[in-house]
């Protein structure tokens, strides 16, 4: 390697470098252009379709948060306010009271409130709810299905891929636009979002 052709060699290197830089730059520009068509300014968040949900109980275990960011919500509008609530009471309960031996919820997160004869209101204490879906299963099989699971966005970290979605057997989890982040029964009906 003689010193004469050194500048020439350096020139060639610079040329290759600049060429590569240009190529990479152009590819980034094209990616940007393509993405402009594909992207949405609306952010996406995770939500579960309560009509697809099979109450498997994985929401309680698989969420990256403990307790899970999936909670039971109550669509009061659909509730029959039954005294004998399949979501609140264990099957074949000893008595229709709030006593521990009669409650289905493992963390006593459902509050039962007397309204008027014969109606009772059921409310979820989200601080206690762990999203195990036991009450949801009870309400869906014996009642109106007004108790159902939803991702609560004040708790959800909105992981890029939801850890529950990955293992959901019913493929109930989906990304929804941030502008309509809930699929609460009543307002949202079956088949609306596919």
């Amino acid at each position: 390697m003689s010193t004469d052709n050194l500048p020439k060699k350096m020139d060639r290197r610079r040329l290759i470098k600049n060429g590569m830089q240009l190529t990479l730059g152009l590819s980034l520009v094209s990616i940007a252009g393509w993405s402009a068509f594909k992207s949405t300014s609306d952010r996406l968040v995770w939500q579960l379709d309560p009509f697809k949900c099979v109450q498997c109980g994985r929401c309680a275990k698989e969420c990256v948060m403990t307790p899970s960011a999936v909670k039971c919500v109550h669509a009061f509008n659909l509730c029959g306010y039954c005294d004998l609530c399949g979501g609140y009471l264990k099957p074949d309960p000893n008595a229709r009271t709030t006593a521990a031996e009669n409650q289905l919820c493992p963390t006593a997160a459902i509050k039962r409130k007397y309204i008027e004869d014969p109606y009772f209101e059921y409310e979820i204490d989200e601080a206690l709810c762990i999203g195990c879906a036991k009450c949801v299963a009870g309400c869906t099989s014996f009642g109106n299905g007004s108790l159902h699971l939803q991702v609560r966005h004040d708790r959800c970290k909105n992981c890029n891929e939801c850890a529950i979605a990955r293992v959901c057997p019913a493929e109930a989890f989906q990304r929804v636009p941030i502008s309509s982040p809930y699929l609460i029964k009543g307002g949202f009906t079956k088949g609306k979002n596919g």
Partner: peptide, 13 residues
């Protein structure tokens, strides 16, 4: 008794 049902809350993201 004219009791009004509460609305289902939906804390926003």
């Amino acid at each position: 008794t004219g009791y009004a049902q509460p609305a289902t809350t939906s804390p926003s993201p």
